Simulated scan of single mutants.
Amino acid sequence: MEAPFEVPAVDISPYVHGGNPAERAAVAAAVDVACRTVGFVQVTGHGVPDATSAGLVGAIDEFFALPQDVKRRYVAPKGVNRGYTPPRSESLSLSLGVEAASRMNDFFEAFNTGAAVSDYPGVELDPAVYPEDLWPDEELVPGFRARVQAWEAEAGRVARTLTTVFADALGLEPGWFDRVTGHSLDVLRMNNYALPPGTVELDGDLTGMGEHTDYGIVTVLWADRVAGLQVLGPDGTWHDVQPAEDALLVNLGDAMARWTNERWTSTLHRVKPPIVDGTIERRRSAAFFHDGDVDAVVAALPGCVAPGEEPLYPPVTIGEHIAAKLAGSRAGRANTAAQREAARVLASAR
Rank of each mutant, 00 (worst) to 15 (best):
M1G: 13
E2Q: 14
A9F: 08
V10I: 13
G19Y: 09
P21R: 05
E23N: 11
R24S: 14
A26R: 15
V27K: 12
A28F: 11
A28R: 15
A29Y: 10
V31S: 10
V31W: 06
V33P: 12
A34D: 07
C35N: 12
F40T: 05
V43S: 00
G47F: 04
P49H: 04
L56S: 00
I60G: 00
E62N: 03
A65M: 03
Q68A: 15
D69C: 12
R73C: 12
R73N: 07
T85P: 05
S91D: 13
L92S: 09
L92F: 14
A100R: 09
N105H: 11
F107C: 15
A110C: 06
A110W: 00
G114P: 06
S118Y: 06
P121C: 04
P131Q: 09
E132V: 04
L134S: 03
E138I: 01
V141E: 00
A146W: 07
Q149D: 00
A150S: 09
G156Y: 02
R160Y: 05
V165Q: 02
L170Y: 08
L170P: 10
L170A: 10
L172A: 08
W176V: 12
G182F: 10
N191H: 01
Y193A: 02
A194K: 01
P197N: 04
G208F: 10
E211R: 15
T213D: 11
D214K: 13
G216H: 06
L221V: 09
A223Q: 08
D224G: 01
G233A: 11
G233F: 08
G236C: 05
T237S: 15
L249G: 10
L249T: 12
V250E: 09
D254N: 08
W264E: 05
S266L: 13
L268Q: 11
K272E: 07
I275W: 13
T279I: 06
R283E: 04
H290D: 03
G292S: 07
G292R: 06
D293A: 03
V297A: 05
A299G: 03
A300G: 12
L301Y: 08
C304G: 03
A306D: 02
P307Y: 14
P307S: 05
E310N: 02
L312I: 04
G319V: 05
K325L: 03
K325Q: 03
L326W: 06
S329T: 07
S329M: 02
A334K: 09
A342P: 13
A349Y: 01
R350S: 14
